[in-house]
Each structure stands twice: as structure tokens, then as C-alpha cells.
Design a protein around this nucleic acid. Structure first.
Lengths: 223, 223
DNA sequence: GACTTTAGTCTCATAAAGTGACTAATTCGC
DNA sequence: GCGAATTAGTCACTTTATGAGACTAAAGTC
């Protein structure tokens, strides 16, 4: 983050660290040491010999002192869009971080996704792509489960899905799909959350099942 | 392709050009000028100031003299896997090319995907990711349609989907889904292909429709 | 003309999804 | 203590999607 891109690294590795903060998704931004700089995604110009995977790990550790619970590469960004560095391209990663357990290091701040400060055009594009990456993987990896504590109520789980998908879900349908997927098992604990009936706590405990085999889907509207 | 990566470009842009060759998918490989080199995906170390998009276009034009009908970035590859260049990372693209109309330039050869010559580890990983990218976009972009001539029979379309997905599809289900998607319209032409009933020709002519709104899907089996 | 081959349709069975209403267990105001 | 409000959890009904096989149609082969 601090160093300028060296001659041997005209690319950067940028990481979008996402968390669920209350009812919103938030990402981690930094201004580095200079207070007058723009906010920016944490990034790093890898050392010679440092792989992009290793660089992304290091960026995350610099920011939160530990590893995200899930990481995926988003892609390479460049195409003339400006970046805090002079690098031609930036390889971007998303990482998910449970909010409760993690506090960012000095200089890093969570910003709700709906109210981000101005970013460089390239990093703005990276953030938008990060959202799409999360949503497209939501049904393939236990993303929502890992953003929650080890036990959780089904309402909490549904709210997490709603947050990540950016849309409301129907309670009965959600639970039916969840049951069919054999992904959670009930504990014998219940939690009373003020008013209303207490909710049973569940834990993530996936069981093997046969992969549903589907035909084709035509999901595109036009050209 | 010919040049070594310069000091200002320690990354390459690699392109997987895919076509349907008879009953198989094939990709375009080159050995460059040296007959004793390994076969490799077409790649290029971008000039200073050349964007990755522009570089991918140029790689494709060098290989087939025109643009693929559909292109998408696969991602950045590196992580210590070897590559024909010395570059730390390679940004990979997939491009689709209709086989009938395109003949590769000198030095480039189509290889069926099931029978590829040895590639560098990094390019091997790129090819595998290319397949996954195509399959995951197949329901979101008119990929199969563009690999076919402008008019085609529904059997041809189904075979193209089967080829791209790597699995058989049920005829009636396929046609029903296709009809529901309003993507093709019949022409008044028919084609007789030797024995059997002549098939009606269709053209790709998508009509607007409301996007199907679905709930959640839990498509992952375990961790 | 009977048989084969490919195209195209139909129907039935089953599974998945959308939806609203219903019951259950708790707190809050009074 | 009791009813309203609130949240959890389930049910029943409808609609839509999917899988599968059988059936009809139109050509060629012999």
C-alpha cells in the first residue's frame, strides 16, 4: 500500500473486503498515511516473485490482521481507467469478513456500500464487479453462513441472504429450499430476542446429496 | 506473440479462441516461428499504454484476422505456474469463433479440446477456466446462436448446446424452454438433410420479456 | 409399400417455487 | 391477568418448471 509500483510490478493487487454491518453491506477503505488523499481500496504492488494470491493475502492481513473467510478473484481491471497507482492493470479480489469478530487496523474504515466516498474510476468498477461476484457465487459457496456466527436463527440467515442478494425473499420458500439442501441442522438452543416467539438456533452442517441435474436455462433477454 | 515481455509489461494477455469443429470444441494454438517450441495459446505482452482489451483484440486479429463474436475476460493467472513468457501473470480471455467462416492465419492450428498437446501449466489452467466461463455464461449470452450460421435448425442448436455444456439434453424440454424464452423465430425455409423429415430453419430473434424472478438456490453440496 | 431415420408435438408425472394464511410462543401496555 | 403486538415456524394451495416417453409427420431406402 505504501510503496509506489516498482519497475518490476506495473500491476497492483486490490482487495474488496466486504462485511455485513447491521443491515448493510460495507467495504473497507483506507487513505493510507496521507489525510488528504482520496479513500481507496486496499491495494499493493507485489514484490518481484510474489504471486497474486500471496499479495492478496498480505493486503488483507495488513488491513484486518487476519484472513477473509472466503476469497475469490474478480478479474483484471485496467482499460485506461485511473487508479491510485500508475499501474496499467489491477488484479482484484473479493474477501468476506465476519463483522463481529474483526476490527480493522489503523487507517482502515468500513463504509456502507450505499454511501461510498469517491473512488478512482478503476476501483469503482472493481467494487461493482465485487457485488456481482458475490451474488453469482452465493448459491455455490456457503458465503452467507460464514458471515454469521457459528449458530444462528433462520431469520438471521434469511436476512443475510437478502442483504447479499439485494432483494427480499419469501420466508416459506426460503426455508423449504434450505431444508431441501440439507445445509443446516438444529441445535437444542433457542434465543429470545425481546418480543416475539423465541427462535431456534441452527448450525451450518452440510450433508451430501445428489446434485440436481438440470437442463438448459435461457436467462438472457436480448442480444 | 513474437516479442519477449518488455520491462514495462511483466504480464501477458492470453486468448483462448474456441470454435465448434464438427462434433467437438476446438481451440486455436500456435507454435510461433520456432517449430521445436511447445504449442501455446496465442498471447502477447502489451505495449506500454495498450489496454488489456486492446491487447486481446490484437491477439485475436493476429490469429484469425478478425474479431471473435463474443469475448469475455476469464481472469488473471499466475501463482507460480509456468508460462511461455517469463511474465509473472497472464490476463486470459475467451473468444468464440464460428468455424465455418474463419480460417486461422499461418502458424495457428485448431486442436480438439479433448486431445490437446502439452501446454505450459499456466495455459493449461487457463484453458480449463475457459470452459467453465463459457458454460456459466451460456444461459446469459447468445453464445450458441452466434456459433451457428444465421439460420439453423433446432436440432443443430440443441447439438451446439450439448457440445458447449458437455452433456445430453432432452429434445422436448429443450424446445419448451426455448419457446418460453422467445429467442428464435421460424423462417419459411426448410432443409432436407438426406434421410428423415426436413427441418424448419430458425433465426435468432430475441423478443423482450420479463426477467424470471427467482428466490434462492442452494447449489453447493458441502464446504 | 414396409422399414428406417430425423423432426416436431403431446401428454402425463413429478418436482420446484410463489403466496398467503394459519398456529405458536413470547413481550408489552394496561 | 389479559389482549394486542411481534416474531417464529408451518401448512395448504396454486402455478410453473422439468423429465421422460410416446406419439405423429415427412422424408429416404430397399
Amino acid at each position: 500500500m505504501r510503496e509506489r509500483p516498482s519497475r518490476t510490478s506495473p500491476y497492483t493487487v486490490d482487495v474488496v473486503l466486504v462485511t455485513a454491518m447491521g443491515n448493510e453491506l460495507a467495504i473497507l477503505l483506507t487513505r493510507g498515511s496521507n489525510e488528504r488523499e482520496r479513500w481507496a481500496l486496499p491495494w499493493r504492488a507485489p514484490q518481484a516473485g510474489e504471486t497474486i494470491g500471496a499479495a492478496s493475502v498480505r493486503v488483507a492481513e495488513d488491513a484486518i490482521g487476519e484472513l477473509p473467510i472466503w476469497t475469490e478473484q474478480i478479474g483484471a481491471f485496467g482499460d485506461a481507467k485511473r487508479h491510485p497507482s500508475d499501474a496499467e492493470i489491477s488484479v482484484a479480489f473479493v474477501g468476506l469478513v465476519p463483522h463481529q469478530t474483526v476490527s480493522p487496523n489503523a487507517g482502515y474504515t468500513w463504509f456502507p456500500m450505499r454511501d461510498l466516498p469517491p473512488l478512482s474510476p478503476r476501483q469503482r468498477a472493481i467494487v461493482e464487479a465485487a457485488t456481482r461476484t458475490i451474488q453469482s457465487r452465493l448459491d455455490q459457496a456457503p458465503i452467507a453462513f460464514r458471515l454469521l456466527p457459528s449458530t444462528f436463527t433462520l431469520s438471521e440467515l434469511q436476512q443475510m441472504y437478502e442483504l447479499l442478494l439485494g432483494k427480499r425473499l419469501h420466508k416459506a420458500s426460503f426455508r423449504r429450499a434450505l431444508q431441501g439442501a440439507w445445509l443446516v441442522e438444529p441445535t437444542d438452543e433457542w434465543r429470545s430476542e425481546g418480543r416475539g416467539r423465541p427462535a431456534q438456533l441452527f448450525r451450518y452442517a452440510p450433508k451430501k446429496r445428489r446434485r440436481p441435474h438440470r437442463g438448459v436455462r435461457f436467462d438472457f433477454l436480448y442480444p
